[in-house]
């Protein structure tokens, strides 16, 4: 029998919610371990091995020590998958990139002397692909369990994962939701990558853009819509800050 691919799960600065989404597959985890060996998954297992084929990496990179650890992981792995918004694009961790690290540190830790303490040696938040090459992306905050399954099965079968490149509106319309704009809310759905089954608008909440923008926030069409719905550019700027701060280009081809 062919040897099962060895999979390791790692986390950096994040809430570990995406790993939890994997645990939340419940009994389907057993299906997963029928064709892969999970050799490292700190959140749920004690065993650890540095011999793995696939690394699933969650979280953003904040410190030189994290960078070094990530490079180590990359050097062991044949395939590296970035899991969730923090890993794929920096996620909420990039909100603080609006300010310089020193400023943020002072804001949070006051005048405490943290010089030389590497635990606190933070730089501007980076997504995984700003440090090492990434082979596959699983978007979302948190990730969608079905999309995780479809990406993993695609990789196992050797096909290209089917990640939508159209906006959330497509899925939102299929769910027959009332448009958030019609309800007076401001929604990033029209410019955000689908794949989440439009879960937020389906629960009557506007899209926050956690899967990344596929259109720039300052394109003509966005301006047109803002004007039509009497929204200020400041609204969209602030809303885009939550997940998409500092992302200049749309992530169409990731």
């Amino acid at each position: 029998m062919k040897q099962k691919p060895r999979v390791a799960v790692f986390d950096f600065a994040d809430c570990e919610g995406c790993e939890l989404q994997i645990a939340n597959l419940e009994e389907e985890i057993l299906d997963l371990i029928s064709f892969v060996d999970i050799v490292s998954f700190r959140e749920v297992m004690k065993e650890h091995s540095d011999s793995y084929d696939i690394a699933i990496v969650e979280g953003s990179i904040m410190r030189p020590m994290d960078e070094e650890r990530l490079r180590g992981i990359r050097s062991h792995a044949k395939i590296l998958i970035a899991l969730g918004a923090c890993a794929t694009m920096g996620g909420v961790n990039k909100i603080r990139n609006q300010w310089m690290p020193e400023e943020v540190k002072k804001d949070v830790y006051g005048d405490a002397n943290l010089k030389g303490n590497e635990l606190f040696d933070v730089f501007q938040t980076k997504a995984i692909n700003e440090v090492v090459p990434v082979d596959y992306y699983i978007f979302g905050c948190p990730i969608d369990r079905d999309e995780f399954k479809s990406v993993i099965t695609a990789i196992a079968l050797g096909k290209k994962p089917d990640i939508p490149r159209y906006p959330v509106c497509v899925e939102c319309k299929k769910n027959e939701n009332i448009c958030q704009f019609e309800l007076g809310a401001f929604c990033l759905g029209p410019i955000t990558r689908a794949g989440c089954k439009a879960i937020c608008p389906t629960h009557n909440s506007p899209c926050e853009g956690c899967r990344g923008l596929i259109k720039k926030q300052d394109t003509e069409c966005v301006k047109e819509v803002l004007e039509r719905y009497k929204l200020s550019y400041e609204d969209i700027r602030r809303r885009c800050t939550m997940y998409n701060y500092g992302r200049k280009e749309c992530s169409y081809d990731e």
């Binding site: 600065a13 570990e16 995406c18 939890l20 943020v104 804001d107 606190f120």
Partner: peptide, 27 residues
């Protein structure tokens, strides 16, 4: 790694505080 959530909240509108602080912890 420290994540500076309190700094992230600075300047956010009241109805965005909930979705941001939710991201402190998945569990």
């Amino acid at each position: 790694a420290p994540r500076f959530f309190e700094a992230m909240l600075r300047g956010q509108q009241y109805n965005e505080l909930r979705p941001i602080t939710s991201r402190i912890c998945g569990i």
